[in-house]
Structure formats: structure tokens, C-alpha cells
């Protein structure tokens, strides 16, 4: 990223090659529209190029995932006039640990771990992340008490973390 801040096109291309599938995959999952997903991908990378200072520190993969999700949700909300939650793009967490985790995660393994979650935990997690609806809307959509949804989200995330610990140290 330091080289990207110095306007190094080759360094930027390296970042694109490493992360474009992640960015596009998140946008596609949120929008279910390949053309719109490409637009979001382009917007995210050009934002990275024009404002590299928006990334401060920590895990780059996590940061660009949050930026992508928020951007895709903006597009989705523009279609549906829906207002919902956003992820904080800059998060104050243990960057070193997070960096080690995301650098070693394999998308296929992660997806398999997600599928191993109980359905009643996986569903609110995926709805919350990819649909951009609040936990209250999830509760309403699934006909589940709000408190139960919150607990299932936390339990599911902890279980996912524990599951992936077998692959990488979370």
C-alpha cells in the first residue's frame, strides 16, 4: 500500500490481481447482478487509487471487504430505498492477528466452514452481512425473536471462529 500511495501503478495492479475476486465476489453476492458487481469493483479500486489514505492500517483484505460491502449495499439501497446498517470501514482491532488470519484463509475452506454452521445460525449471519438488513429485520423476516437472533449471530460467529481455528489461529 505504501507504493500505491506513491502512485505506483505496478503496485496497484498487484493489489488488484490479489483482491479483485474477493471484491467482485462480495459485490456479486450482495447485488446478484454481474454488471452491477463490476461497477462496484471498479468503484472500489478507483477509490483505493484516488484515496489510498482511507486505508490506515490492519488487515487490508478485511478493510477492502468492508468497503466493498458498504458500496454494494449503497447500490442495493438505491434500488430499494432501503436504509440499513453499515460496517465501520476502519476498525480498531488487533491488526496483527487479523492480518495473519485473513492472509491464510482460503475462500473455499471458509465457505465450507460457514456451511457447517447450523442453519439457524448461518442464515442470520449471511442475511446480516450480504443483505445489509438489520438484526430486527432479520428477526421479522425469519419469524424469530430478536434476542434469539442476536444470540444466534454471536454463537454462529464464535463457532465459525472456532472451526477455522483448526486451519488458522483465530
Amino acid at each position: 500500500m505504501e507504493r500505491v500511495r506513491e502512485r505506483d501503478a505496478a503496485a496497484f495492479e498487484g493489489l488488484y490481481d490479489a483482491y479483485h475476486r474477493l471484491v467482485y465476489g462480495i459485490a456479486l453476492r450482495v447485488l446478484a447482478d454481474t454488471a452491477a458487481a463490476e461497477d462496484v469493483t471498479q468503484a472500489v479500486f478507483l477509490k483505493l487509487w484516488s484515496s489510498p489514505q482511507s486505508y490506515v492500517r490492519g488487515n487490508f483484505g478485511g478493510w477492502i471487504s468492508r468497503v466493498t460491502r458498504n458500496r454494494a449495499l449503497d447500490v442495493l439501497r438505491g434500488r430499494t430505498a432501503h436504509s440499513g446498517a453499515e460496517l465501520p470501514e476502519a476498525v480498531a482491532v488487533d491488526g496483527a492477528m487479523e492480518e495473519a488470519v485473513l492472509a491464510n484463509l482460503d475462500a473455499v475452506e471458509v465457505r465450507a466452514a460457514l456451511r457447517r454452521l447450523p442453519e439457524d445460525q448461518r442464515e442470520p449471519i449471511e442475511l446480516g452481512f450480504f443483505s445489509g438488513i438489520t438484526h430486527q429485520e432479520i428477526a421479522a423476516r425469519t419469524g424469530t425473536p430478536l434476542g434469539t437472533i442476536k444470540t444466534r449471530i454471536r454463537s454462529g460467529l464464535r463457532k465459525l471462529r472456532a472451526d477455522l481455528r483448526g486451519t488458522v489461529a483465530l
Binding site: 465476489g25 462480495i26 478485511g62 466493498t68 460496517l87 488470519v101 484463509l105 466452514a113 460457514l114 464464535r158
Partner: peptide, 17 residues
């Protein structure tokens, strides 16, 4: 502790590509 798990959820979308 939970943030990496959320990032892992995001990472799972890459497998769709």
C-alpha cells in the same frame, strides 16, 4: 475476536467467483 470471523464470511464470497 469476532471481527476475523466476519471477515471470513466476506471471504467466503470469493468462492462464488
Amino acid at each position: 475476536r469476532l471481527q476475523p470471523a466476519v471477515d471470513a464470511v466476506a471471504r467466503s464470497a470469493e468462492a462464488c467467483t
